[in-house]
Amino acid sequence: MGFKLLSKLLVYLTASIMAIASPLAFSVDSSGEYPTVSEIPVGEVRLYQIADGVWSHIATQSFDGAVYPSNGLIVRDGDELLLIDTAWGAKNTAALLAEIEKQIGLPVTRAVSTHFHDDRVGGVDVLRAAGVATYASPSTRRLAEVEGNEIPTHSLEGLSSSGDAVRFGPVELFYPGAAHSTDNLIVYVPSASVLYGGCAIYELSRTSAGNVADADLAEWPTSIERIQQHYPEAQFVIPGHGLPGGLDLLKHTTNVVKAHTNRSVVE
C-alpha cells in the first residue's frame, strides 16, 4: 500500500471513529477524501466538511520552486461564519470567499490569524475590503508590521502568557507558548472536538522541520505538551499544512522538532 493511500485511509478511519463516538456532533463529509496538494491548482481553494458547521479550507501556493498546501478553518456561528487564517495570499483568499459563498452561503463576518507569517495573514486586506472584521493577538499584529505583512485590524486580548485561553464565538483560542513562531495560536472547536494546530503542528508525513527561522526550538516541545494537557479530548487535529489526523500529530511534531534540534547540535 502506497504512503499517500495509507495517509488518506488514516484520515478516513479517524473521521469514521469520530462519527461513531459522537453521532450528534459529527456529520463528516462523505463526498470524498481530504484534498491534497496535487489536486488543488494554485489560485483555487477546496472546502472539506469535518463536522456539522465545521470545515477546513485548503489552498496551495508556490514557494521556492515548489507547491505547498495550506489549511485553515471555518466555523459556523449562528447565521454567520468565523474564518481562521487566510488562504495564503490575496488571490487565494478572494477564491476562498467565493467558494464559501458557493458552498455554504453564509457571510464571513470575523477572521482570526493564528500567527504573523504570510500563509496566515496574506489576504487580510481582501477580507477587510469584503467587510470582514480581522483579528490577531497584539504580538501577531506587531510582528506582521515588522515583517511588512498585512496586519489584522483588531487585537485579541488575554493571550499574552503561555497557557492563556479565551473564548471567541464558537471557538476557544489558546496560546501554548512559542513553537513554530513566538505568537502562534491554537484554535479548538469544543462542539466538535476539532483542534486546529496551525503551523505549530505537523502532518504525519512530514519528517523535516522546514521553516524554523522564527521558531523557538527549545520551547516548542513544552508548548505541545500544554496543548495535549489542555485538549486531551480532541479527536480531529488539523495541521497548518497537509493531512489531518488525531492527537498523534502532536507527538510526531515533537519528535521531528527534537530530531532537528539534535542534528543542529551535532553539526
Rank of each mutant, 00 (worst) to 15 (best):
M1P: 05
F3Q: 06
L5A: 15
L6K: 15
S7H: 11
S7A: 10
S7G: 08
L9V: 14
Y12I: 11
L13A: 14
S22D: 12
A25N: 13
F26W: 15
F26I: 13
S27N: 09
V28R: 09
D29G: 10
D29P: 10
S31H: 08
P35C: 06
E39F: 09
P41E: 12
V42E: 14
L47E: 02
V54M: 04
S56Q: 15
H57R: 03
H57D: 04
S70H: 02
R76L: 12
D79V: 09
L82N: 04
L82C: 02
A87L: 03
A87I: 01
W88A: 05
A90E: 13
A95D: 07
L96I: 05
E99R: 12
E101M: 09
Q103A: 12
G105F: 02
V108T: 05
T109W: 06
T109N: 11
T109V: 13
A111G: 07
A111T: 07
V112M: 06
T114W: 00
H115K: 00
F116Q: 00
D118C: 05
D118G: 08
G122K: 09
V124D: 01
V126F: 14
A129M: 14
A130H: 11
A130K: 13
A133Q: 14
Y135L: 01
Y135P: 00
S137T: 14
P138R: 09
S139Y: 09
S139E: 13
T140C: 05
T140H: 05
A144E: 03
E147K: 15
E147W: 15
E150T: 04
I151W: 05
P152N: 01
T153S: 12
H154I: 10
L156N: 00
G158H: 13
S160M: 12
S160Q: 13
S162A: 14
G163W: 04
V166C: 05
R167P: 12
P170C: 03
V171Q: 01
F174D: 01
Y175T: 01
Y175R: 01
G177N: 02
H180S: 02
S181E: 03
L185M: 06
V187D: 04
A192F: 07
G198K: 03
G198Q: 03
G210I: 04
N211R: 09
V212Q: 12
D214F: 07
A215T: 07
L217A: 07
L217V: 13
A218Y: 14
E219K: 08
S223F: 05
I224K: 03
E225P: 02
I227H: 04
H230S: 12
H230C: 05
Y231L: 03
P232W: 09
Q235P: 05
V237Q: 01
V237D: 03
G240W: 05
H241C: 01
H241L: 02
H241Y: 05
D248S: 12
N255H: 09
V256M: 06
K258Y: 09
T261C: 06
N262T: 12
R263V: 14
S264E: 13
E267K: 12
